[in-house]
């Protein structure tokens, strides 16, 4: 009998190796400009970038821009999710609609959302609505496809059982369709959250509505490399947070479900 069990030792080893990996990455980054491999004007020292990062964290203007980006993200994600759930459920439940919309969906889905940026700018100028068009379009499909998939997954025997017991349409929806679809919906939501963030920032970069993305573009055109890199790190941390939060929510919501679903290939 060992006092610290092998499993805990292994977990500790993992965590330590992970820290070593991150530290090593930062160290190599610091060494590259120090050794003169790349001019610090283009790849600034890590120390400078981190200093700038902390500077920004105490700057109220930075938080306002972050808030602006996250507001677009939240509005876009909410609208897209509601639209996708409603349309996805209707289309998924009615075989006629499923067949009729199939080609449309297969053509519209692969259109890269950013191709719509010019159109959005024409319609709304450099306001938030322009960014929302892009965010909603991109995240809509993630949820929509998962919902259709989920609704189609309702077990045929379970459906017949429900019908034979005379459950009303409404009861069927809440006791049968909803529980089956929920895991799919959560997967779609997690993917959509990541996509919405990417496009919120991208739209700001290209369109120029206020937010982190515009700040990035401004630092670039001003030649402020440490500021640019610090913002890239911020977006990475933001993306990481969104991923972790949605993975956590997914696991909590589906804890009753015997198989917390893996990544659904898209």
């Amino acid at each position: 009998m060992r006092v610290p069990s092998t499993r805990r030792l292994r977990a500790l080893r993992r965590a330590m190796l992970g820290v070593v990996g991150l530290t090593g990455f930062l160290l190599i980054w610091q060494l590259i400009p120090t050794l003169g491999l790349i001019n610090p004007l283009y790849l600034p020292y890590v120390t400078d970038v981190l200093a700038r990062l902390f500077e920004q964290l105490v700057d109220l203007a930075f938080w306002r821009r972050l808030g602006s980006t996250m507001t677009s993200w939240a509005i876009g994600l909410t609208v897209a999710t509601i639209a996708a759930v409603v349309l996805g459920t209707v289309v998924g439940l009615v075989p006629f609609l499923r067949r009729a919309t199939h080609t449309m969906v297969e053509f519209l889905r692969p259109i890269p959302s950013v191709a719509l940026i010019p159109l959005a700018v024409l319609m709304f100028g450099i306001q938030r609505q322009a960014a929302l068009v892009i965010i909603i379009y991109a995240s809509f499909w993630q949820v929509f496809v998962q919902v259709i998939y989920g609704v189609a997954d309702v077990d045929a025997v379970a459906r017949d059982t429900a019908r034979s017991f005379g459950l009303t349409r409404r009861e069927q929806l809440s006791h049968l369709v909803l529980p089956t679809t929920l895991p799919y919906l959560m997967t779609g939501l997690r993917l959509a959250a990541a996509v919405a963030l990417i496009l919120a920032i991208t739209a700001e970069m290209v369109i120029g509505n206020p937010g982190l993305g515009r700040m990035i573009e401004l630092s670039r055109s001003a030649g402020d490399a440490p500021g640019l890199y610090a913002l890239v790190v911020v977006t990475g941390l933001l993306g990481l947070t969104v991923n972790i939060v949605f993975r956590f929510v997914e696991r909590r919501v589906l804890s009753w479900h015997q198989s917390v679903r893996g990544e659904e290939p898209l």
Binding site: I198, T202, A225, L228, N243
Partner: peptide
């Protein structure tokens, strides 16, 4: 987790 388009300014630099 870094949104890939953010890397465009970096790559330009």
């Amino acid at each position: 987790a870094i949104p890939p388009p953010v890397l465009i300014p970096v790559a330009m630099l």
